[in-house]
Design a protein around this nucleic acid. Sequence first.
DNA 1: TTTGTAACCAGGTGAGCGGT
DNA 2: ACCGCTCACCTGGTTACAAA
Length: 335
Amino acid sequence: MENINFNNDNSYFKPTAEELAKVQQSRVPLNTTRCTEKWVNILNSWRNHQNVGYTYTLESLSSNEQIEKEMCEFLYGVRTKKGDKYSRASLKNAVASISRHLKNSILYWNYNLLDKNSFPKLYATLDGTLKEMKRLGIGAAKLHEGLLRRVFLWICLLGCPRGGEHYKLLIDQFEDTEKGFIFKKFQQKNDQGGNQHTFEILFPSDIADKVEPNADIRKYISMRHPNCTTKEFYLGISNASGQCYLNRALGEKWIRGMFREICLVCDIDISGRNISNHSGRDTAIQSIFDAGNEEIEAMAISGHNSSADEVLEDKELPKSNTINKNEASKDKEQI
DNA sequence: TTTGTAACCAGGTGAGCGGT
DNA sequence: ACCGCTCACCTGGTTACAAA
């Protein structure tokens, strides 16, 4: 190794404090900054509200006990502009954002509000609030969410995609025909090595008012926005009043969640393994049918935190499983 | 723009599995 | 029985984005 000449080149320099501050600041994306500011604003407007009446700012407090106490109150007492409770995701977001803010604004304050060891009461309040909301069904399912769940269940039963295939499903893989939907698998996992032929599964015909997979899927597809450019089959759920599904693929978490629900509801052991894998698939599908209708209906229409009544108005539910049993064995042969 | 929420990401955790 | 490894899932936190 040659010695480096430290004297005669300009490759080294001592950055100024401003330069360092600038690069450190640039690490944080604009959206994060905005999100932080937003929650600080909400916090302050809660504090200034006549029913609360904290006239000083949270960051002016020196004791963590007091910060924790007031944060607990905030968490449980804050409401959206419309007066509703915030969703679970938002509350988590709120605590994280305010923690970020305190770290930036109180000198040498290096704590994390989400840390259950430093702030046990705050943690308990957050956790308790989230659980309470879950119990009360806050964040309940919408009609089109129920439809999506049903469609998902049909496709699980009739199309038997493997675990990972669910969120890669494309809208092109479904062809609507007179006989029913044809579900095409362009390439299967076990086709590795060059076997590229397309695999087609014809979904069984609907039994009116009893088993209507085709009608469900047809309705689901028709509810996609006409200008939708997303290729994925499953779309994100919209909260807007006029729109049902977003022009964006449904998150993997969502899909995995629905998948797990089916397994839980039907008592299928998925510990450590995806039920759609390998030889477990046939038995898993069989167990779904054996589990009986009520649970399946419950899952298909509602899911973990939704109110079934809402969806019931929308749609008559699958009532019979005998027909589908035959179809399930048909699928078994194909696979 | 602001508001509310979901997606994304990294790091942690623990069950399961093969090898010893 | 135990070790080390892998891998799916979970958690905490950050970032993106649709809707208003």
